[in-house]
Simulated assay, not measured.
Amino acid sequence: MRTEDLHSLTGAYALHALPDDERDAFERHLAHCAACEQETQEFAAATARLGLAAAVVPGPALRDRVLHRVTTVRQVPPGGGTAEKTRRVVPRGRGLARWALAACVAAAAGLGGTAVWQYERAQDAGQRAAQAERRAETLAGVLAAPDAESRTARLADGASGTLVVSERQDRAVFLASGMAEPPSGKVYQLWFDDHGTMRSAGLMDPGSTSQAVLMEGAVDGAAGVGITVEPAGGSKQPTSDPIALLSMPA
C-alpha cells in the first residue's frame, strides 16, 4: 500500500472501520508519521460527541445513506497532496479539528433532540428541554466559532483529550475519547488553571468513556485546564494530583 493511501486512512482508523490488514499497515505507518498521529487523535476526539446521542437508535436506512455519502467524498491526505493545491490552506488546529468537531456536534445535537422529545410528557420536560437546548447550542457554538482554537493531547492508557476554546465567546469545551472509568464513588472533575489557582469547571460523566463537556464558567484568561479524580459530586478545590494538564491553545 502506498504512503499516500495510508495518509487517507486516519478517519477510518479512528472509527475502527479498517479491516485487519489495513489496520496493521496503518499502525506501522502511524508510529513514524506525526501528521497522521495528530489527525487520528483529532478524529477520535470528534467522535466522542456522538456518544452522547446513544439514547436513540438510528434506523438501518441512516447507515446506508452515510456509507453512500462516504463513497462520494474524497479525504485530503494530511500534509500535502494534489487536492490541497487547489484549496485554501487552513491551519490544522483551526480547520480540520474545528470543522470535524462541529460536524459531529451538529449530528449529535439532532439525535439528542429526539431523545428530549421522548420525555415531553413528564412534568418538568419543558425546563429540561430548554436547559439541554441552551447547553447544546452553546457547545456547538464554541466548536463552530470562527476563532475556535484546539489543542489535542494524549492522556493515560491510550486515551486522548481535545480542548477547544473560543476567545470571542470566552467559553471552552473538553472532548475526551477512550478514558478509563474513574474508581467507584469517584468522578473526573475539570478545572481552569488561573495561573496557579484551580477553578472548578464542572464534572464529567463517570459512566461515559468518550464525551463532550461544555466547561462551566468563562475562560477568563485561564492559562490551561486540569483534570483530577474527586469524590462523587465534586470538590471545591482539587483533592488529588492532576491526571492531565492541557495548556490553552495558542
Rank of each mutant, 00 (worst) to 15 (best):
M179W: 12
D157V: 03
D157G: 01
V66R: 07
A132D: 05
V76G: 05
T82P: 12
A61Q: 13
R92M: 11
A176N: 12
E4G: 14
R23K: 15
S166F: 08
A103C: 14
T10P: 02
Q38P: 01
Q127W: 11
E84Q: 08
R135A: 13
E216G: 00
M1W: 08
A103Y: 09
G113L: 14
G185Q: 09
G217Y: 10
A31D: 08
W117K: 14
A14G: 08
K186F: 08
Q131A: 07
A159M: 00
S150P: 09
C104W: 02
A12Q: 02
P242W: 12
Y119I: 13
A144K: 00
C33A: 08
A109C: 13
A107F: 13
L18H: 06
A140Y: 12
F192A: 00
L190N: 04
T209I: 02
P146V: 11
L96P: 02
R135Y: 04
A48G: 11
G51L: 15
R65N: 14
A244I: 05
T138F: 01
A34P: 07
A31F: 04
V56T: 06
V76Q: 12
P242L: 10
G110Y: 03
A12S: 02
T72Y: 09
G233E: 02
R88E: 14
D205G: 01
M179A: 04
Q38T: 10
E120H: 07
P231N: 02
A31M: 04
G79R: 04
P19Q: 02
L62A: 12
A12H: 01
G158S: 00
F192R: 00
S247A: 05
P238I: 06
S8K: 15
D220H: 15
G113I: 06
S210E: 11
Q75E: 15
D24V: 12
S235T: 11
P182I: 05
D157H: 08
V89F: 05
V116H: 02
V142T: 00
V116D: 06
A148F: 07
V219M: 05
P77E: 10
E181C: 00
P182W: 01
P238M: 01
A97P: 01
D193N: 15
L18N: 05
M248I: 13
D193H: 09
P146E: 10
P206I: 11
G178H: 09
L214P: 10
G110P: 06
R23F: 05
H29D: 09
T3K: 14
L62Y: 04
V164D: 01
L52C: 07
A250V: 05
F43G: 07
T86A: 13
R199H: 06
R154W: 09
D147P: 14
F26H: 04
G221D: 00
A145H: 04
A106G: 07
P183E: 05
Q211F: 01
A109W: 05
P238D: 01
G11K: 11
T71V: 10
A34K: 11
P146A: 09
A144F: 01
Q211W: 01
R121H: 12
G161N: 04
A148E: 06
Q237A: 13
A45S: 14
L30V: 03
